[in-house]
């Protein structure tokens, strides 16, 4: 077990740092996914045909192709696209997407597709009568959103968003192909230099298990908190 100790000799501190990196990528990607998800759900529910079609295409495509392919696209193609965009703004230098940004954007876009469906379902779950009642009271749209829609959507979407977060956490392992040092990459480095692959990958598995278990505990608590005002049969 000396292998996993702290300091110069062991890999404990490296793995701990890598775990933080995994958490950082997953959190940023999840938040980005929520942004895409809200936009996607709004578009899908908008009844404006081009927007609906666009959002449908977005969720169909990104849920139908492997995440790894999206990561490769951004890893190899993202720099070029970025240079094209900055050139339009008049900057002619060399810019590149770093591995962290690539990972966050790739996983964020994919997770946005799943979040779209989660949020859309939650909006549809809000009883129609409540919306009608709010309108009858003369609530302006923004007030209605803030007072009636948002609190309930949050509650209804929480279980599925919990699943999206778990997916997000596990997908970050794929970012290791771009060289970003998160749990998986660090384990590969450790496995390579000590010739003990099983030890390191088993460690990675345990770290992921800890993360996913803590997350499901956290989401269970959040759901209890969100449901505290709901009568149970």
């Amino acid at each position: 077990m000396g292998l996993l100790s702290w300091g110069d000799k062991g890999w404990g501190d490296e793995l701990a740092l890598a775990t933080l990196m995994t958490l950082a990528v997953a959190s940023c990607a999840f938040l980005l996914g929520l942004v895409f998800g809200s936009l996607g759900a709004t578009a899908k529910l908008s009844r404006i045909r081009p927007l609906v079609l666009l959002a449908d295409a977005y969720t169909t495509v990104l849920r139908g192709i492997p995440e790894l392919l999206v990561i490769y696209l951004l890893f190899f193609g993202g720099g070029g696209a970025l240079r094209f965009v900055v050139k339009m703004f008049g900057y002619d230098g060399y810019v590149e997407l770093n591995a962290f940004t690539t990972g966050v954007i790739a996983i964020g876009i994919v997770n946005g597709a799943y979040s779209t469906e989660a949020i859309r379902g939650a909006v549809l779950a809000v009883p129609k009568g409540q919306i009608e009642a709010a309108k009858a009271y003369g609530m302006p749209p923004w007030t209605m959103f803030r007072r009636i829609l948002a609190p309930q959507v949050l509650r209804y979407a929480l279980p599925s968003l919990g699943n999206v977060w778990q997916l997000c956490l596990k997908e970050t392992a794929l970012i290791s192909v771009t060289g970003l040092v998160e749990i998986m990459r660090q384990s590969t480095i450790g496995a390579g230099s000590t010739k003990q692959p099983f030890t390191f990958y088993a460690c990675a598995a345990v770290l992921y298990l800890v993360l996913t278990s803590l997350s499901s505990l956290g989401f269970a608590r959040a759901e209890r908190w969100a449901d505290r005002g709901v009568r149970r049969s």
Partner: peptide, 8 residues
């Protein structure tokens, strides 16, 4: 755990 970990 991620599938990648299982494969590796």
């Amino acid at each position: 755990t991620p599938l990648l970990v299982q494969i590796f």
